[in-house]
């Protein structure tokens, strides 16, 4: 067996650990790609009854992003079981209480409901910031590519960079420049 083939076989039969940075990512968009690694859909030996999924470590889940008014408009329903026990919580309120809950719910609800769902979810490790325990970090061998690029703020550019950027409009001739 060639050297590459041997490593391929190791990767197929071993339980790998993948890292995913959730900063500025929409959890609803990246749920499918995370599900792929959790269930092992990318492996040639995949079968629904074969337990061949990998672990996924998600960091910075507090910095997830939603489009437009989604933080206000998206509500999470819960019923206690008693009469009048229904509650509707906006996404931002739920995120205040538990910064990992929205991401976990997004992945959980994307997967098909069967007896394996809760077993697969046990392999998803979500951390609200980048403080990950040592025993988790030492396992990680791969990083899942982010779906959205992190936007750069104007403050991150240097003053010279802003000045030298090509200008589209010029000030009119009788314009009064303000200082600062």
């Amino acid at each position: 067996m060639s050297q590459l083939g041997r490593v391929k076989q190791w990767n197929t039969f071993a339980r790998c650990w993948h890292l995913f940075d959730a900063a500025w990512q929409n959890p609803l968009e990246c749920a499918p790609s995370i599900e792929k690694y959790l269930k092992g859909l990318n492996k040639p030996i995949y079968h629904p009854l074969v337990d061949c999924g990998d672990h996924v470590v998600v960091i910075n889940s507090k910095q997830i992003a939603f489009p437009g008014e989604e933080w206000r408009r998206r509500v999470y329903f819960h019923h206690t079981g008693y009469s009048g026990g229904a509650t509707w919580t906006p996404a931002w309120e739920l995120h205040d209480r538990d910064p990992t809950m929205i991401f976990r719910k997004a992945v959980y609800h994307h997967m098909k409901g069967n007896l394996f769902r809760r077993v697969v979810m046990e392999r998803l490790h979500i951390y609200s910031d980048s403080n990950v325990p040592e025993e988790v970090i030492e396992n990680i061998t791969n990083q899942i590519p982010p779906l959205r690029s992190i936007p750069k703020t104007l403050g991150s550019y240097s003053k010279e960079e802003i000045e030298k950027y090509p200008k589209i409009i010029d000030y009119p001739e009788d314009f009064i420049l303000s200082k600062n």
Binding site: P67, E70, A91
Partner: peptide, 14 residues
């Protein structure tokens, strides 16, 4: 305040 503290992106087609 409130929901404004969380990251938001926008769709230009709106």
């Amino acid at each position: 305040k409130l929901w404004k503290k969380y990251n938001t992106y926008f769709d230009e087609s709106t």
